[in-house]
Design a protein around this nucleic acid. Structure first.
Lengths: 350, 350
DNA sequence: CTGAAAGCGCTTACAG
DNA sequence: CTGAAAGCGCTTACAG
């Protein structure tokens, strides 16, 4: 009576239909109804189908809360990340959800930013909600989330973030990615390849630079040149200025960039100098960030870290652990792939 | 014995400590322990503190599944979106989580893409998990998610997606945003303002164009010119070519763009023609997509739809509904704001 | 073939 | 002031 004739919405919360409702309607006990619906126990086929039909009619949905309580398994997991709304966690999340949806597992998204208080709040919430496991993700392979995930009593997997010692982790193979790029240049016959990348405070910068140097050495090329700076378009412009203004030696015919933003800056800067990409200088980026890579003129050839696949692996592995299977600890490096667009030629015979 | 001496991880799933464990350790009944921890009932202060201390020592965490079962409230909600990994839902999600975290409500993230099957799977999962409510989000205000959310028996809120009739929805005020931009140009004394925007298949394109026309009319300006095309940088380039190549009439001194990508294309194209931004031509974008807006040279002045605030409102409103409060149905338009960077002057006296 | 009972981990009237 | 009992909605041995 109190929600009289106004136009207001006060959701009519229907009492969900319970197993008991189904049992009564079918004239059987709750136990039998349960067994009928779960294809358990023995009963006449007639009883079973009748119960199932009635359940369907009534729109019965088993209360997962009750099931979880006695199965000691909630069919939920927590995904912690400090990059929820950024570049890297998004594809990882997509992969995780994809892997879990089919198994009936739902994902709680927890944005912990870099705040230990937020982190603790989310971990507490996950533990109270009895998630079956936790995936920790992030935006840097060399930074730990602001929470301690060891010894939670439930399985934990690290996916694209700095793992705890002796845990299970999935990361991108940055060395491999860099090698892919540099070898592509070499296959194209490039002679003078420089590497313009991010700040030296990032571990991946060094890992990729090492791989770059190694490939050059393997092929007996001119001494490597690694230029570190911010992860920005602007740094790409600056680097090109440094390379081409009063260049004493040979100027590069190939630039391998640490991310797509730098690559875009490099391509723009080259074009502004009247150099043609890829005819005069080839450029390869890193990340395959669609919005940047595709909008560059010409569109960027770049390295994709396959983060969605990484997320999928992480999700499946977590499920194995939840099922009680044993898994080797350690860090698994998952391969990157080269995405060929137009900022760099196609290798001969490809 | 079977997980012998290999190095494998098989998470030691600790049996979580239960209220019963606490009660036994404290030498009280489970009922008393419960009341002690919830500050309910009457008992000596001594008993209460003792129980609380023991609970803390044992690391007791109430099993939220059990609590939910009898409270008929799970402290979870589902966030459905078809833009999980895209531009618009992300800030909405951030706002939703932010609003709910403090209240102890966790968020299931459900990526339904545009697939009715995926949509149904997620809705079923949410209903079985007895979420307290659902927020539907998306990437377009004029497209419905591929699921029917009416009549679920739980509260539903629409946030940045096409709502059901007679539901509660939060959307951005696109007319208001467009007005902000055009009025800013007028305050700066611009005389010839054109509007380069997205495809005519988008409702917002028309809404913004109407507002643009209205403001020009109000101020007795030259006839409006609305140019529709793809939401891409490339369209920005093309539009500038159309406007400046063999221009018969006056060329524009201001371009209001439908998104930041178009705006970036416009700015680049103007610069390539030797025109200065903002001195010769001012440019305003839409979306405040940091990665695009900040990297443009000069950085874009643009309209921000305040999507995080929108998400926060949606979250809080959902909680009201869950608490049984009545809410007026209807579509709430939330204001946009102008973010001033450098692609357009600052209005006099600002 | 079917059902009564116990129990998952809690909370909340209700007795005592 | 404290505890026994009932119950949230299920499932699973165990009887019959």
């Amino acid at each position: 009576m109190d929600d009289a004739s106004d136009s207001t919405i006060k959701t009519a919360r229907r009492r969900p239909v319970t197993l008991r409702d189904v049992a009564e309607a079918a004239g059987v006990s709750v136990a039998t109804a349960s067994k009928a619906l779960n294809d358990q126990g023995r009963m006449t086929a007639e009883t079973r189908t009748r119960v199932q039909a009635i359940a369907r009619e009534l729109g019965f949905r088993p209360n997962s809360l009750a099931q979880s309580l006695l199965r000691q398994r909630s069919f939920t997991i927590g995904l912690l990340t400090n990059d929820t709304y950024g570049r890297f966690s998004l594809p990882v999340m997509a992969g995780v959800s994809e892997a879990l949806l089919e198994k009936g597992v739902s994902v709680f998204l927890c944005n912990v930013e870099d705040d230990p208080r937020l982190g603790q709040m989310h971990v507490d919430a996950m533990l109270e909600k009895r998630v079956d496991g936790i995936i920790a993700s992030g935006k840097r392979l060399d930074r730990h989330l602001p929470v301690d995930l060891s010894n939670l009593g439930i399985p934990v997997i690290y996916a694209f973030t700095e793992p705890d010692p002796n845990s299970i982790a999935f990361v991108s193979d940055d060395e491999g990615g860099a090698r892919l790029a540099v070898e592509h240049f070499i296959a194209l016959g490039c002679r003078h390849i420089v590497h313009v990348t991010g700040p030296e405070t990032f571990a991946v910068v060094h890992r990729r630079a090492e791989a770059y140097r190694a490939v050059l050495a393997d092929h007996g090329r001119t001494p490597p040149r690694v230029m570190m700076g911010p992860w920005s378009e602007n740094w790409g412009h600056q680097a090109i200025a440094e390379l081409f203004d009063d260049a004493e030696g040979e100027t590069p015919d190939a630039v391998f960039c640490g991310n797509d933003q730098i690559a875009r800056g490099v391509v723009d800067a080259l074009r502004e100098r009247g150099l043609r990409v890829p005819e005069d200088v080839g450029v390869i980026g890193f990340d395959n960030w669609e919005i940047v890579a595709a909008a560059t003129r010409p569109p960027l050839t770049t390295i994709d870290m396959n983060l969605t696949a990484l997320g999928r692996e992480a999700g499946l592995t977590l499920l194995s652990l939840v099922d009680g299977k044993a898994v080797e600890p350690g860090i698994r490096k998952l391969p990157c792939r080269l995405v060929v667009r137009q900022s760099c030629g196609r290798p001969p015979g490809d």
